[in-house]
Write a protein that binds this DNA or RNA. Structure first.
Lengths: 206, 206
DNA sequence: TTGACTGTACCGTCTGGACGGTTTATAAAA
DNA sequence: TTTTATAAACCGTCCAGACGGTACAGTCAA
């Protein structure tokens, strides 16, 4: 509602469909990564187009060619990161085939991994929350999806969800730089989470 | 390091010690509440002094008298909300005297309560994260305090901490408007958290 | 030729904050 | 009690810089 029409559904603003390795898409992704770095370095409140220009080395015109407005840029960040996160989770779920509660396991694993610190969804989320609360809906929808999967995977789905929430909170704290745990504590808590999932799986198997 | 010296330790900018009902302190608190409302209505990225001017009805000069910079305002919000949150938790802990794991219980109770939606620490936190990442240290310190209390209260302190994290995450999600739960689910999860604390207490008592 | 840019110049708006002036509370002096 | 002094509390305006965004002429590889 802010800007008219930016990129209706997909993660691609120019005309053609998403051929992944076009020159256009490569620099597009480069812009998104630069934006992430800006948020990481300066905080979500100082994500400006000019900052992305500096960080990416691209010209302002170039940036605005890919993302016709700042809102579109933020939307792009959200989409990109949701997709990346989902890709990782899906990959882990696949590896965990056969085990009980694969989704919770995968979510906890991904959120405990180092990826969270580098390019986190939370970071884009902060940027969005700071400037374009509208785009957050997508994140909520995505979360809901996982909730429903967990509910399908377990009778004690509430317990699974709580474990996921705990992992999520640790990830958010980390990104917001308010994590009050030592590395050791963090590892221990993470391990404990996984072992609790095991317990949960064992219980529901009986 | 941004502004020279604002309010070194206390939550009071003028000279004298904190007589709670001075005219000054009243309008000071009024400004803070107005700032909270602004963040609630417009999002942390649109917290501006002028917005607080409009919301509070006070003049810009008046605002800047109490908080000589925007950074000081955000710092004030953080302090005020940390204190308010701690007050509530302390009050609940007192009520729970005798029960096991009082701190976790109190934290979960407070974070599940309606207070979170009205004037939450998270909101100030968002504002800080958006603009002045420096002030976040105080929040981290405060969290650490609770962690250590929980560790003192229980042998299974890690489990207690995980429960707290789950509750925290629900609260954050709510405030960021990315909570993917229905009201019913939320209540159920909250109740489940409390019952899990009971289990924890029972286990450690044996 | 076309798509993918670069580079520069520019505009309107918003924002933090400085500043000078005015009102109000308080308390001492008359 | 009234007057006066003084500082705190507050007002309203102004300004420089930042920011989002436009426009447009030119470059350069595919």
């Amino acid at each position: 509602m802010t800007t008219k029409e930016v990129s209706p559904d997909q993660d691609v603003p120019p005309k053609k469909a998403s051929k992944k390795n076009t020159r256009s898409n490569n620099s597009r992704v480069a812009v998104l990564h630069a934006a992430e770095r800006v948020v990481q370095k300066l905080g979500p409140g100082r994500l400006t187009i000019d900052a992305v220009v500096t960080e990416s080395g691209m010209s302002k015109g170039g940036i605005l060619y890919h993302f016709p407005s700042k809102s579109a840029l933020v939307e792009g960040m959200i989409n990109h990161m949701v997709e990346e996160s989902n890709r990782r989770v899906a990959q882990l779920v696949e590896q965990l085939e056969g085990e009980a509660n694969p989704t919770v396991r995968a979510l906890i694993e991904v959120q405990g991994g180092s990826w969270v610190e580098e390019q986190s969804l939370s970071r884009a989320l902060m940027a969005a929350a700071a400037q374009d609360p509208e785009h957050i809906g997508k994140v909520r929808d995505n979360k809901r999806l996982f909730v429903e999967r967990m509910q399908a995977e377990s009778q004690d789905s509430d317990d699974a969800i709580l474990l996921w929430l705990a992992a999520d909170c640790m990830a958010i704290n980390k990104v917001l730089n308010i994590s009050c745990f030592t590395d050791e504590e963090e590892k221990r808590l993470h391990a404990r989470l996984l072992s609790l999932v095991d317990k949960l799986s064992a219980k529901s198997r009986t």
